[in-house]
């Protein structure tokens, strides 16, 4: 197989090609290919166990894929150019710092205040100047509506507030790509709205986002493209207007019946 060097499309921020991943004998990803263009929002849908979260975790190598390649703005992730030699841990750390991740369980650092959570990695990983980072972080907190919580520790926040901090923390890294791993699944239903609202403004503001979610409303209204996964494969992709009203595959129809009418 010929190793592609970079992507042909310069607008392509994320380019995943033929990704496979197994845990033991259990094939979780079975040749998944996917692209996300600059400024676009792609929603990954699918029943639980379909491999969505694993795919997301492979993108920043929290899980190591077995085969396939991932390009971030044309640069290979996880492997050095040529695709044979794995990246060193420091190269991998640098690559990860270009991708923002928002976790299902927030994964905030409990020993740091809200503001400290935001500035921690920009200062200590990206080595940016403290003054600049703090000023930006304060702006981000304003954007997610948490300016008054900046000196509070995470365990004093509601789930929705925690997740908004989680999003602001990812944004503070000025990432080329934002990954959302079921960002509203751990929230009480009444708190989902505030997080979805923040994600919408991000999407409309031109952030490049790959979102694993069960929030069909968000996918329908905000995504530029939806991708349905099942059994470790991409079953269908398309415009949300197409996908939700006129799905092409039986699998997609079944999925929509179960998740959208419910």
């Amino acid at each position: 197989m010929v190793e592609h060097v970079g992507s042909t499309n310069p607008e392509c921020v994320l380019d995943i090609r033929g990704l496979t991943k197994s845990f033991g004998t259990n094939v979780v990803l079975d040749g998944v290919s996917l692209t996300v263009e600059r400024g676009k929002t792609v929603c990954l849908l699918g029943p639980s166990g379909s491999g969505k979260s694993t795919l997301l975790r492979c993108v920043n190598f929290l899980e190591k894929p077995d085969q396939g390649s991932i390009y971030l703005s044309g640069r290979r992730i996880g492997m050095r150019e040529g695709g044979v030699i794995p990246m060193s841990t420091s190269e991998l750390a640098q690559a990860r710092a270009r991708i923002g991740m928002v976790f299902q369980h927030f994964n905030l650092w409990p020993h740091l205040t809200v503001l400290q959570n935001l500035i921690e990695a920009p200062i200590h990983v990206q080595r940016r100047s403290r003054d600049e980072v703090v000023a930006e972080a304060e702006m981000l907190l304003e954007r997610v509506g948490l300016t008054d919580k900046k000196d509070v520790f995470p365990n004093r926040l509601s789930g929705g507030q925690k997740q908004r901090v989680g999003i602001a923390r990812a944004l503070a890294m000025k990432p080329e790509l934002l990954l959302f791993d079921e960002p509203t699944s751990a929230l009480d239903p009444e708190l989902v709205g505030e997080v979805v609202a923040v994600m919408k403004t991000l999407a409309e503001g031109g952030s490049t986002m790959l979102v694993v979610t069960h929030e069909m409303g968000f996918a329908r209204e905000t995504a530029n493209e939806v991708v349905l996964m099942d059994g470790g494969r991409v079953v269908e992709k398309g415009q949300p207007s197409e996908f939700f009203t006129n799905p092409k595959t039986d699998r997609a129809r079944q999925f929509l019946q179960r998740y959208v009418s419910a």
Binding site: A93, F103, W109, P110, M173
Partner: peptide
């Protein structure tokens, strides 16, 4: 969770431990 987040944000080695 908090360690995984640190890894995802590019922390590694001594700084992962000390920070």
């Amino acid at each position: 969770e908090s360690i995984e987040a640190a890894t995802a944000f590019g922390f590694r080695g001594p700084r992962l431990y000390t920070r």
